[in-house]
């Protein structure tokens, strides 16, 4: 009885976490506010707002400046410095990216669903094949016995 209750609790937790991840993936996490592209407006936008509710300006991501590590030229369009030709090293910044997490959580849900669907099809195929082969065998044996 105890084991059964424990199993039901585990199942409930698994389902709850699956729903939570799905909901999280669909609705998006609470990401920090971002500034309106129109500097004069100065309003704060929610992470998933594409337009400013105050001035109506479309939100565009601020461009990150790349700086050459050698000659400190920050006006670089390619990943190579036009001045000295050295490759610009992009520094990896370890900050928690909740927006990317939402996208990945969506892939998690779709990926696991996809695997189980493909697996289900393969299992169905094997079962059908095994049954068919068994039946053909039986029919052959019956004929031989007759």
């Amino acid at each position: 009885m105890k084991k059964r209750i424990l199993s039901v609790v585990i199942l409930a937790l698994c389902l709850a976490s699956l729903f939570a991840v799905s909901a999280f993936a669909i609705s998006g996490p609470d990401a920090p506010l971002k500034d309106c592209t129109n500097e004069e407006c100065g309003a704060k936008l929610n992470a998933y707002d594409n337009f400013c509710s105050k001035c109506g300006t479309k939100y565009t991501e601020p461009e990150e400046e790349e700086i050459c590590q050698v000659c400190k030229d920050d006006n670089i369009e390619t990943t190579y410095c036009p001045e000295c030709g050295r490759q610009v090293e992009k520094e990896m910044k370890f900050k928690l990216d909740f927006e990317a997490l939402g996208e990945s959580a969506m892939i998690l849900c779709k990926g696991m669903l996809g695997i189980f669907i493909v697996t289900g099809i393969i299992i169905a195929f094997i079962l059908i094949l095994n049954t068919t082969v068994e039946k053909i065998k039986q029919i052959k044996e019956n004929k031989e016995n007759k």
């Binding site: 990216d97 997490l101 996208e103 990945s104 998690l108 990926g111 697996t119 094997i126």
Partner: peptide, 24 residues
């Protein structure tokens, strides 16, 4: 085969973790 499918969860979970840590 269902277990083979279920045990791939780590791949997708790690994808979430790596994304959270800022990997593209």
């Amino acid at each position: 085969m269902l277990f083979g499918a279920g045990a791939q969860f780590g791949i997708f979970f790690t994808l979430c973790m790596a994304s959270l840590l800022g990997f593209d």
